[in-house]
Design a protein around this nucleic acid. Structure first.
Length: 787
DNA sequence: CGCAGGCGGGG
DNA sequence: GTGTACGCCTGCG
């Protein structure tokens, strides 16, 4: 039987672990394959220990406990060394937890390992069954009441991989709930669910509306409709943190149940804080939005607009406390309900667009579809490395609590301020992964204070850490493997028809592999990583600095003018033959690929690092780091600075830029700029009470909290600076509580718009008073093109 | 005036 | 819960 693996969980049935593989078969039927799981952990005796003796002791101790099935000595590797470990097989995961601890306490003979691997993960690793892929399994039909799938099988043998790229047709729906409160956030202990919208991919959109007091009926209808529609994928926006917990709490209050999964039980919280619906993939698109860095403000409307499925303003409405009042009158309720429908439809469309990439990320990293959406990059890499460790017969280290020590990172050069014409940006392809491969930077090749002949090690510059040249370390093997499979996917892409499904899948697969490859360096320096060794990350950074330094030397000796450099990129004055020579020489010396990334017709640098704007040959403007692209500056500032940059870079027209600024400032003073362009958004990175300083956004948040709002870590606070006296934070108002005539326009002009404008205009020798003074813009001096 | 806390975006 | 480097705001002594 062929099936595509959608979800995996385990149940303990009569002291045995049953692994449940939920999937779809090749005809689109839902299937469940049950099989046994074997829970176990390892004891790794200390090196000086006599193995026979250790094993005898362990066996003697294990013999006393009936939940331990057996022990066996197995050959494994641990941090690159061949070791013998004792595998302790248990009946249940609970026994694994209990005896791994007990044994290491009563028998202090070594480390206990892999007791932190959950049964479903263990099964994935052991049988190489990565989720979101096709498998062939020899299985017999069985009957199991109470499980909601078309067919149930018992596996006779472990599944084997089937090379088939295309995912099956997944039944998908999106849902959204509507709850309201007279003030602030709705509270499930008080406010009923007012409406639930279900938007199935196939079929009509449904809206279940309650009478506003008793939501029991719509909760029950929702549950039964999910059962009837039987989705493989459940989409939503924020349902892990809002909709599901709210529904669960409401159901509890109503003494109702929410058996929406495929085994008749309720949604529950799982590993990455997400809500798991067994047998289906519950995907919160708010989690997935973090994979789209281009979308700054993570609202459903912003994501919808970015993906061109809806206009932001049509989606992000009624998301504030005022909406509660709308529910009261019947005719004003209509737009509220219509908006909710649009939100569910937008979620559905967004999900359909993003599903391919999530499926590939799931299959590459080995995390089930619902988990991969919720897991952060570090956990995705963690999962990937665990699969690779299994492939290489390496024991999986546990996460350990350890202190965090910062280390020195990359080099950033002081830019040459001014406008430069024809500037090429050269950069290395995957610099950190390549440095890790070339220098064998890996936890297992890292040589601490052991004495080793100089010829056998590579020494990292500046930091002096040593790494064995041979054998290839874990990171090196994994990174080489990643690069090899990516190359293979790229080759297949070249042959594929760009309009085919195959092409689309391969493109997403290639992206997923790239993300994992590029995250390995950061992962190596993350204290939470299973394979965290700070010296590895620190050495990669040091090799990076040395490499960049060398490129700068070589550019200089070739007579190429360097304008700026950051980490793995160098900005040089365009000179085709010299650049080509530089690239060749750098490649042969470093063994890494470096190429021209882009050529700016004109690029403007201020004195600041990491801030510049460049004009590309197709007339588009690249703005990096400047206020115009930052989310914590009001629209007014972004708009003015971007406008000025466009004028000075594409037309070289400073007079027009000054005129543009003057006109905008005038509009501000005349009240012709809308309130929304004055809003400053800042994120709360900790609970409001935890702040020791009084800042505008924290004070605005306090005002909102006093008004009954529910603000949490990660929430964005939009505020306005209003007229009046006192410190800035005393004049910060939540934007919903301010009107246009209260705005301190002069503050915005002098402290926000002008500084941002002058950062650009100042580069042309203009002074603030000259710009806003009475002088005619056309009499301003021109400084363009000096370099 | 200088330093610290806070935040966001870059490579 | 990938890393470090950086700029620039406001608060505060």
């Amino acid at each position: 039987m062929f099936f595509w693996l959608l979800d995996i969980n385990h149940e303990v049935v009569k002291d045995n672990v049953e692994i449940r593989l939920w999937g779809k078969d090749s005809s689109g039927c839902t299937v469940l394959v049950v099989t046994e799981g074997t829970p176990y952990f390892y004891i790794l005796p200390k090196e000086e220990m006599d193995l026979e003796n250790a094993l005898r002791k362990i066996e003697a101790e294990c013999g006393k406990h009936k939940e331990i099935v057996k022990t066996e000595l197995v050959g494994k590797r641990y941090f690159g060394k061949s070791v013998k470990a004792v595998r302790v097989l248990c009946k249940t995961p609970e026994a694994v937890e209990k005896y791994s601890r007990l044994l290491s306490k009563t028998l202090p003979i070594g480390e206990h390992l892999e007791d932190d691997i959950r049964p479903a993960t263990r099964y994935i690793l052991e049988n190489s069954v990565s989720p979101s892929g096709w498998y062939d399994v020899e299985a017999s039909r069985v009957v199991r009441p109470g499980l909601h799938v078309d067919q149930i099988y018992r596996a006779v043998k472990p599944p084997t991989l089937v090379e088939r790229l295309e995912a099956p047709n997944l039944r998908t729906l999106a849902f959204s709930i509507l709850c309201m409160s007279e003030k602030g956030s709705p509270d499930p202990s008080r406010d009923p669910v007012l409406a639930i919208t279900i938007a199935p991919h196939q079929g009509r959109i449904e809206q279940l509306v309650s009478d506003g007091r008793d939501d029991r009926e719509i909760l029950e209808t929702f549950t039964s409709r999910i059962g009837e529609l039987d989705p493989d994928v459940i989409l939503g926006y924020g349902q892990n943190t809002f909709d599901w917990p709210y529904l669960i709490e409401r159901a509890k209050r109503q003494k109702a149940r929410l058996p929406v999964d495929r085994m008749g039980s309720e949604p529950h919280r799982s590993v990455y804080g997400h809500i798991s619906v067994t047998g289906r993939a519950n995907i919160d698109l708010a989690d997935v939005s973090h994979d789209i860095p281009e979308v700054k403000l993570k609202t459903l409307g912003s994501v919808a607009e970015f993906l061109q499925v809806a206009k932001r303003v049509d989606i992000d409405r009624f998301q504030d406390a005022h909406a509660g009042e709308l529910w009261r009158s019947l005719e004003r309720r209509r737009p509220l309900l219509e908006n909710q429908q649009r939100r569910a439809e937008a979620s559905l469309k967004i999900g359909r667009i993003l599903l391919d990439s999530m499926i590939q990320m799931s299959n590459v990293t080995g995390l089930p579809l619902d988990q991969v959406a919720a897991a952060a990059v570090g956990h995705r890499v963690d999962s990937y490395l665990m699969m690779q460790a299994y492939r290489l017969n390496e024991l999986i280290p546990r996460r350990t609590e350890q202190p965090y020590t910062p280390y020195q990172g990359a080099t950033v050069l002081e830019p040459k301020p001014g406008v430069h014409e024809n500037v090429a940006v050269l950069d290395f392809t995957s610099m950190y992964p390549n440095l890790m491969i070339i220098n064998n930077l890996s936890p297992d090749s890292y040589v601490g204070d052991e004495s080793i002949p100089d010829g056998e090690v590579i020494v990292a510059p500046e930091v002096g850490y040593r790494f064995r040249r041979e054998p290839p370390g874990f990171y090196r093997r994994v990174l080489e493997y990643l690069i090899a499979i990516r190359r293979d996917v790229k080759q297949r892409l070249e042959k594929a028809d760009p309009n085919s499904v195959e092409y689309r899948v391969l493109r997403e697969r290639e992206k997923a592999i790239k993300v994992v490859t590029n995250a390995c360096y950061g992962y190596a320096g993350w204290v939470g990583a299973r394979w965290y060794v700070r010296e590895v990350a620190e050495s990669a950074a040091a090799f990076g600095r040395a490499t960049l330094r060398r490129v700068l030397q070589m550019a200089e000796s070739l007579g190429l003018a360097v304008i700026y450099a950051d980490t793995d990129s160098v900005f040089v004055k365009y000179d085709r033959s010299k650049i080509e020579r530089l690239l060749r020489e750098v490649e042969s010396e470093t063994g890494m690929e470096i190429k021209i990334d882009k050529i700016y017709i004109r690029v403007l640098f201020t004195e600041a690092k990491k801030k510049y704007a460049g004009l590309l040959p197709n007339q588009t403007l690249d703005i990096v780091g400047l206020e115009a692209v930052r989310g914590d500056w009001p629209n007014a500032v972004r708009l003015v600075q971007e406008g000025i940059l466009k004028l000075v870079l594409s037309n070289k027209n400073i007079e027009e830029a000054v005129e543009f600024l003057r006109t905008y400032v005038q509009k501000m003073r005349l009240g012709e700029v809308p309130l929304s362009d004055f809003i400053v958004w800042k994120t709360l990175i900790k609970p409001v009470e935890a702040y020791r300083v009084k800042t505008p956004h924290v004070e605005a948040a306090k005002t909102l909290l006093r008004d009954g709002w529910n603000l949490k870590v990660g929430d964005k606070v939009g505020f306005i600076i209003v007229k009046g006296s006192g410190r800035l934070h005393e004049r910060a108002r939540p934007y919903l509580m301010a009107s246009i005539d209260q705005v301190d326009v002069e503050y915005y002009i002098s402290s926000q718009v002008l500084p941002a404008a002058m950062r650009v205009l100042g580069m042309f020798g203009l002074k603030e008073d000259a710009v806003l003074g009475s002088a005619d813009a056309s009499s301003l001096s021109r400084y363009i093109g000096q370099d």
